[in-house]
């Protein structure tokens, strides 16, 4: 007895060029989808990383060594605003240590610098990046504070960039999904048309619409699943290949290497998307014929 899946498989084998066309377009769309998804997820992680970093640095005058009371006073003033997530005091010694850690590969830079040359500072994280300016303005009013820097522009720019990636990705992938759907519809539509007599016979023998449709739907699903596995494999290989370069490029931002579990989730999503596009294409192609 032939199951719908085995019937679908034998039909795919009997028309390899049509199958190749269907799988190719499916692979291309899902590959594009996975690349955009990975870029969007990556930029989202980078954005999150920057959002959780200390976003305002208030540097004391280099000749000032703030007392514990003075630091506590500034801390309590900031905390009463309700805008602050955390406040941390970085002493001159800690600043030197940070400097040493950053420049440990260059001994020449380390020799000339002492703790007295570096300013003490206060690192502040905001609850909401939009309050960074208010916090910075408040710190600027402190008499011992010489300079205030905050990462508002970086975070805002990253947010804009992430949104743009998402928008472009959704539009491009959406358009490709539509084109793929139409092509699958056409390919399976041709097959349905070629099997017109067979379908009519099935109907005369009492087959239900579901019985007739099932192999065509499975055919579409098989195209989708195959395309998804290939697209995922290629995008994962590209990601693995470019990981060393990206790690250097994103120094200090711990989003790489991408966990295998995450990639398996991406595979699951692609399989689902491929199956839905293919299955729906197949269903619509045969239903159109059955209704005619």
């Amino acid at each position: 007895m032939n199951s719908p899946t085995s019937t679908a498989w034998s039909r795919i084998r009997r028309s390899p060029y049509q199958a190749l066309a269907a799988i190719s377009i499916m692979t291309m769309t899902l590959f594009l989808g996975s690349i955009f998804f990975l870029v969007a997820a990556g930029s989202q992680s980078v954005l999150k990383y920057f959002e959780t970093r200390p976003q305002v640095n208030a540097f004391f005058k280099s000749d000032v060594v703030p007392t514990t009371q003075a630091v506590d006073l500034i801390k309590s003033k900031l905390e009463t605003t309700g805008l602050v997530e955390s406040v941390r005091y970085v002493s001159k010694e800690e600043a030197l240590q940070i400097y040493k850690d950053l420049n440990k590969s260059d001994p020449l830079l380390l020799e000339a610098v002492t703790a007295n040359m570096l300013p003490a500072s206060i690192e502040v994280s905001a609850k909401n990046p939009s309050d960074l300016k208010t916090i910075a303005e408040a710190l600027k009013t402190e008499p011992d504070v010489e300079d205030v820097r905050f990462a508002e522009d970086i975070v805002n720019q990253l947010a804009v960039w992430t949104n743009s990636v998402r928008l472009i990705g959704f539009s491009l992938v959406g358009a490709h999904i539509f084109i793929t759907f139409i092509i699958i519809l056409l390919i399976i539509g041709i097959k349905v048309s070629n099997r017109r007599d067979e379908i009519v016979l099935y109907q005369l023998l009492g087959a239900t619409g579901g019985y007739i449709s099932a192999p065509f739907v499975w055919e579409g699903i098989l195209y989708g699943l195959t395309g998804a596995v290939i697209a995922w494999g290629v995008s994962y290989l590209i990601l693995l290949y470019s990981t060393p370069f990206l790690i250097r490029f994103l120094t200090g931002i711990p989003i790489l290497p991408v966990p295998v579990g995450f990639m398996l989730t991406v595979l699951g999503g692609e399989l689902l998307l491929g199956a839905v596009i293919g299955g729906l294409g197949g269903l619509l192609a045969v239903r159109r014929f059955l209704k005619a």
């Binding site: 109907q203 005369l204 023998l205 009492g206 087959a207 239900t208």
Partner: peptide, 10 residues
């Protein structure tokens, strides 16, 4: 219809 056709041989 499909059930009826199952009772008819053609």
């Amino acid at each position: 219809i499909h059930e009826y056709r199952r009772t008819v041989g053609t």
